[in-house]
Design a protein around this nucleic acid. Sequence first.
DNA 1: GCAAGGTC
Length: 778
Amino acid sequence: MRRLIICEKSHAARRIALILSDGSYKRRSIAGTPVMDFNRNSDSYTILGLRGHVIELDYPKEYNDWEGTPPKKLVSIEPVKSVNPSATKIMRALREAASKSDEIIIATDYDREGELIGVEAIEHLETDVPLRRARFSALTKAEIEQAFSNLADVDLRLATAAETRQYIDLAWGASLTRFMSLASGQRGSDFLSVGRVQTPTLALVVARERAIAEFTPTPYWLVTADLRKDSVSFSASHAHGRFEAREEAHAAAVKARRQKKANVKDVEEKDAQEYPPPPFSTTIFLAEVTKRGLSAATAMKVAEDLYTDGYISYPRTDNTVYPMSLSLRNILEKLRKSDFAKEAEEVLSQEKIRPSRGRTSTTDHPPIHPVEGATKSELKGARWTVYELIARRFLATLAPVCEVRRTKMALDIGDEPFEAEGYKIVSPGWRKYYPYYRVNETILPVSSVGDSAEALKIQSAEKKTKPPARYSQGTLIQEMEKHGLGTKSTRHEALQKLIDRRFLKGQRIEPTESGVAMVSALENHARLHDEYKITDAKMTAHLEMEMDLIARGEREQPDVLEESQAMLEDIIDVLERNRKEIGDDIRKALRKQRSLGKCPKCDTGELVEIRTKGGDSFAGCSSYPECRNTYPLPRGLLVLPGDATCEVCSAPKIKTVAKGQSPVVLCIDPKCSDAKKQRYIGKCPECGGDITTIQSKKGKRFAGCTNYPDCKKIFPLPQRGKIVPTDEICDECKAPIIKVWQQKNRAPWVLCINMDCPKKEKKGGKTKGDAEGKRKSE
DNA sequence: GCAAGGTC
């Protein structure tokens, strides 16, 4: 018999061919698509890898005209299926291979989408060749052999469930996207999108922002003591913890201050173990890698490249438990030929390697791990950042526990009870290989009961409770996972969409004006019952339930679709009735979002950024042509509203941001003394003019003389950090001296801006800042 | 020019 096996992706096809043929398969190409042939138990096999979903769902072309199709009409239009353009060659190969087969075996991933990926490809062929299904939960020899000797039937109900999801996602997404875009006059590339995953994700951020706005800080007081014993300085805090009343805290502090001595009442030492972190699932990986400054979308792209190039395993996984079939020692051996040779050696030298494990165990793919050793010179930049993180995480998950010693000291100061806590790493274990978490060691002086310490200072300090923190890309993706929004493969894409379409902004993510307006409009108008609120993550949960019912045969697709369509039509009716209000609200939000501030000349218009054809941009008044007020804007920089007016000339302030630099807030009018002051660095050593910061076309900053072109003096500047002039000049070369703040809580770097200054030769390097800054553990 | 889900 001639059998054709189809897999979800080429990688899986190769792996299955290897297992079933014991390595004896032959490669061949059909219509430019690689396939593999082999013989097994008197049958001949051909195996081919698809490229995920090869069939696309969309509305017929005649409905592409947004203005000409009422959004509500879209709901009941039957979408058509077509071959994804990137898969035409694969489909040609599939058709040819199928025509020469007596049986087709679908061997796609064993999940709902996998079932549909196989079924849709075969349905498109309209072939009568009998169909079987191989179900395996891992690409291991045991699983694959077992699946192919127990071939099952295709589960059409499961595939239908996935197909229903497609129909519903398209109907809701397309009709609501069109409605919102048209109602607010956003056509072309500026359309406003709505979707089952992206909109509830946006709503999560809006909800967080509201919680932050509504938050009222509650004051509380902490009483702390600076102590010293045997020339070791340490601090203790009042055993009461937070005082809610100022008087109580003060009273405690005053009482304690009567004594200049702290008496040790109790010392408790405890050895504890800190366990290694769990292996990387996609979500955990993204949470960690985004802390290193990459966006989730960039990090995934880099990880996919590293996977394709054979450096790391498949990066899309929910699994946090290494499967038994994975040879951890083999991987460590590979790492011996990498920049982590020493580390791998150490981990290998353990008598027994006990990998850490997370809560989620799935069988589709192992946790993300390196599969090949690499060096920094081989990978470079972001590729190295990602590879290093994955390699180090892998080493950490196999490394010993971190042994720590915690000390608790109880003290009395003037009859007031205080506590001091010590924390010391005895043996770093996994922390040695995974140095990304900062830890704060606190050493207490060796003490026993009855000892005393000098009480240097007792203070009562007012603190305030803090509002919930904004999400980062990493924590938002974790939150999405918690709410069942999106999948391991799509969460970063949904997030990136919200950023690209300007619904979300910032490193600490906040919604834009239009983001808030979208959510408010949909919350107020696009709801019928609580379980069908498009802004609510519960909508996904509800859909999941319906899909399960279809898969179990307890509901039929037409029923579910009809119900969903009726609901959507009702929602669109409500939206249409409020069309003007919704449109006005969003338009207003967009205008505010784009505004750099009120025009100081006419006081009615808003200043908005306008790009010229040449690539330059300027700020112009929205009341043009009545008001022709304009200001040039710096090139190569992101220009944002400064949310303030200039104290000098009452024009709005703008915030300019260059990649990697701290933002600068300055008056929009470059001729205003405030703008000049913000850019001022010092006096020109050549002509006595002003040296100011200037941005190059590409956004790099440097310092140059304002007497240009008469004086062409320029100096390079550090690209990172906030620059503050000092009024001082270098005693050697007379160039201005500046301070550069490159990190919070670190002393600034003080330097003469002249890179060729003879003094630099003598001293060399930069002045090291104060490294004693407060460190927070993560 | 719309979604979300696969994969590259």
